[in-house]
């Protein structure tokens, strides 16, 4: 279901004032979140994590271990939520699906020749269909950044629309790889293209390029989602990925979502963190809150 059945018009994307975006982000980071609010925020952040393993050396064992971590973040501490999803390569989807049986945790698969996206469209579509057939609930696709930077917006648009069709019932997250897009103006354009072409979620990065998710980039994407919502009444989800490793930063992202999009987005259906280290940091903070003692990674499972 393409959100619009038309090509993308660059004129719909407003120019971005980088200075004011950075100023705004600095202010999100000045919020002090303590006590009960902090604990609630940490639990919410944990429930929004897409626990991710996207290494060339991934094995079935590694994926199973990750799935166990997703279902049992830290059994020593009762009352904490599970993560939202496990994010793996398409060939690992079946393993993850099996390991997560009986839980509500979704399986997300990166497809379309992740992370470069440099493959013929047919290969990308086959990659997507394969992942869906294996049982993926969500597909994380990458856009063709090279073609985007050449100004070939229609091709990028058409590719996303085609992948969306190939997804069928699976949700589509579109990775913009903002670290390669150079400017915030480009980030806004790519966000609009993805949203108009049918993305259910837009996602910052693959995690393979530095910088990955940053607050300014995420804010620009959130604003694209907000403007689209004002215009059409349709909600689009957001997933910053890569580079969010500490609880404090995760809380600041939540502040940003709350103040840009509002309460409706404050749940795993509409906002996710793509991260692997963040989960343990949140668990350590929650344990610190319960015990009053600063924690060590040695006492948390290393997945």
């Amino acid at each position: 279901m393409g959100n619009h059945n038309v090509s993308y018009q660059p004129s719909i994307s407003p120019p971005i004032d980088q200075i004011s975006v950075e100023e705004r982000c600095a202010r999100f980071q000045s919020r002090s979140i303590k006590g009960e609010t902090k604990v609630a925020g940490l639990k919410l952040a944990l429930s929004m994590i897409d626990l991710t393993t996207l290494e060339g050396k991934d094995s079935e064992g590694k994926v199973k271990q990750l799935c166990y971590k997703a279902m049992h973040p830290h059994d020593a501490m009762p009352g904490i939520p599970t993560v939202a999803a496990v994010c793996v390569y398409p060939t690992m989807v079946r393993t993850a699906r099996k390991a997560l049986k009986g839980s509500n945790i979704k399986v997300a698969a990166v497809a379309t020749a992740f992370p470069s996206g440099l493959a013929p469209l047919k290969v990308k579509l086959d990659d997507t269909k394969f992942a869906v057939e294996e049982g993926a609930d969500e597909i994380d696709m990458v856009i063709s950044r090279g073609r985007f930077l050449q100004g070939d917006f229609n091709l990028v648009f058409d590719e996303i629309a085609a992948v969306k069709e190939a997804c069928g019932k699976a949700h589509l997250k579109v990775i913009l790889e903002t670290g390669e897009l150079s400017t915030l103006d480009n980030v806004r354009k790519a966000s609009d293209i993805a949203i108009f072409a049918g993305a259910d979620f837009i996602k910052t990065s693959t995690g393979k390029i530095q910088p990955a998710a940053t607050m300014p980039v995420t804010l620009v994407m959130l604003e694209a989602i907000r403007d689209y919502y004002y215009e059409t009444g349709k909600m689009i989800g957001m997933k910053p990925a890569g580079g969010i490793a500490t609880s404090k930063l995760a809380l600041h992202y939540l502040v940003m979502v709350r103040e840009t999009l509002g309460e409706a987005w404050m749940n795993p259906d509409w906002f996710r963190f793509g991260a692997s280290k963040l989960a343990n940091d949140i668990l350590m903070q929650l344990a610190k809150d319960q015990t009053g003692v600063y924690q060590s990674l040695n006492y948390f499972s290393n997945d």
Partner: peptide, 8 residues
């Protein structure tokens, strides 16, 4: 106390 009880 915090120098003595820190788990790390």
């Amino acid at each position: 106390a915090h120098m003595a009880n820190h788990m790390d």
